[in-house]
Design a protein around this nucleic acid. Structure first.
Lengths: 134, 134
DNA sequence: ATGGACCTTCCCACAATGGGAAGGTCAAGG
DNA sequence: CCTTGACCTTCCCATTGTGGGAAGGTCCAT
């Protein structure tokens, strides 16, 4: 199949497929005489795998590592688990950070009347030295 | 004071101060004869304000809006509160999304022995059509 | 043969930030 | 007075992952 169909069936845009190829994440596929990229079932599996990992917030470099592990039939599952656990920790840390920001902002917003009155503790708080709660 | 001291005292790097100036977030400051930027207490307040909003995840455009509101003595606090609540919602949504990713990955990792055995449900799961739980 | 849906490569853009080069300035100490 | 080192200036480049779009070639159905 051509790149368009591969994109539709894998959930990875044609642009990104070419990008993944350009950064060496996936090997250059076969080409037709006219130069069109050809993809088969094996390539589609890889693209779907990449779509999954991307949707789980892995970076391209992490995707590369996971892909290597996926292709290596003899790798230890410990390594895969290590990557997964590290990613879980990273995701949780970022989520916690966002929530800390949210909490700080919520505290500021709580005391703001939100009416026609210009008096607003949100701006006062932002002007001060308030730190995001850890 | 020069840009270096303003950076140190506001928490905004000199690079970013120049950047904020270049995108019109802050007005061009006065200059010495030699062309050095000069900052006073008022500018420092603004930089600290920007440092706060940035640490709360506001984008430059949102910072611009908040700054305008801050400078406008007669604005209604409702507008400020609206921006704050929208940002809270965005932060919470992003955090929830990250946690959904984390949950999916945790579920996958749970069944992985993490030993020398190559058998690994994480990779199997990533290859499948598992969706991130909403 | 023509038109529309594909495909190709190449360049540009984003947001926010840092790195670094090449060169000017300032203040302190010899 | 001159050197030295810490500043400052502007300018360009890179990052991450993604999309937009131009210019041009291809394929297929009518």
């Amino acid at each position: 199949m051509n790149i368009g169909e591969a994109a539709r069936r894998s959930g990875v845009s044609a642009k990104m497929i070419r990008y993944y190829e350009s950064v060496g994440l996936i090997p250059p596929p076969g080409r037709t005489e006219a130069g069109y990229r050809r993809y088969g079932a094996a390539e589609l599996d890889i693209l779907r795998f990449l779509n999954q990992t991307r949707s789980l917030g892995f970076t391209v470099e992490q995707m590369r590592a996971l892909l290597d592990l996926w292709r290596d039939r003899h790798r230890a599952s410990a390594e895969v688990k290590r990557l997964a656990l590290a990613q879980i920790a990273a995701l949780e840390a970022r989520a916690a950070q966002l929530q800390a920001m949210s909490r700080t902002l919520r505290d500021l917003a709580e005391d703001c009347h939100g009416d026609e009155n210009p008096e607003c503790p949100i701006l006062d708080g932002l002007a001060g030295t308030t730190e995001v709660r850890k």
